[in-house]
């Protein structure tokens, strides 16, 4: 029994040494293969790797590595209203055109459905709708329509949108929105029961 345990400890000790080397050299596929080679002891091996890395202490990254990583979407600290507005302006796209394209991408063809898409998008861009609840279908569609920014939108959807500005509060109550079209007062316009497409849009936007 003692011999068997010795053999196993040697195997796991060797696997640990090889796994740490693969970690250091950034060979992720080898790391996974080596961990799997531990069989039933995989979790224990991972914990030993973790302990070894913990004992080493934190790394000292180079300034080049820091700056390169800081520019990736995950580190973008802007809110969705800022990101969407800037991207739309950079592309020279008016909001009605974007909304029409978005409705088409989402398969919403009815007038009431399109109107609801316009309302919901307006709420996103003005910080009234929390992007965290929005479906991946809407995130993907917006990302594509605004020029390959799916990753950025997905990475920043947890960023808080912040308090509403006074201008947004006005818009919410039915004042002209930034593109000049008039938002209809919600209390007057909305029917008691939403239509099928309105319900579908609400679901897609996490409302």
């Amino acid at each position: 029994m003692g011999f068997v345990m010795d053999e196993r400890d040697i195997q796991l000790g060797n696997l640990l040494a090889e796994t740490l080397l693969a970690f250091d050299q950034g060979r992720s596929a080898d790391v996974d293969r080596l961990l799997d080679n531990a069989g039933d002891d995989r979790l224990e091996l991972v914990e030993m790797v973790e302990l070894s890395l913990t004992l080493r202490g934190p790394a000292s990254p180079s300034s080049e590595a820091i700056e390169a990583l800081a520019k990736t979407p995950a580190f973008d600290a802007r809110s969705w209203p800022e990101i969407l507005t800037e991207a739309r302006h950079a592309q020279g796209v008016k909001r009605p055109a974007l909304v029409a394209a978005l409705a088409q991408r989402l398969g919403i063809a009815s007038l009431d459905g399109e109107e609801r898409v316009r309302e919901r998008y307006h709420e996103i861009e003005t910080g009234q709708l929390d992007p965290r609840h929005i479906s991946t279908a809407v995130v993907d569609a917006l990302g594509d329509l605004l020029g390959g920014m799916r990753g950025l939108l997905d990475a920043t959807r947890l960023n808080p949108v912040g308090p509403l500005s006074p201008s947004v509060s006005f818009m919410r109550d039915g004042f002209d929105d930034v593109d000049g079209s008039v938002l209809v007062d919600a209390t007057l316009a909305r029917r008691a029961e939403p239509t099928v497409d309105e319900r579908r849009v609400d679901e897609l936007f996490g409302v």
Binding site: F23, S28, V31, D32, L35, L43, V46, E47, V49, E50, L53, T54, P58, A59, S60, P61, A65, I66, E67, L69, A70, K71, F75, D76, A77, R78
Partner: peptide, 26 residues
């Protein structure tokens, strides 16, 4: 000062990225 914040957060992440890789594999 978002660029500064991003750089500082990136440095902190890189200090522990290897440990995070191991922890993900748990």
């Amino acid at each position: 000062e978002l660029r500064t914040a991003q750089s500082l957060a990136a440095e902190l992440w890189l200090r522990y990225e290897q440990q995070a890789r191991a922890i993900s594999r748990k």
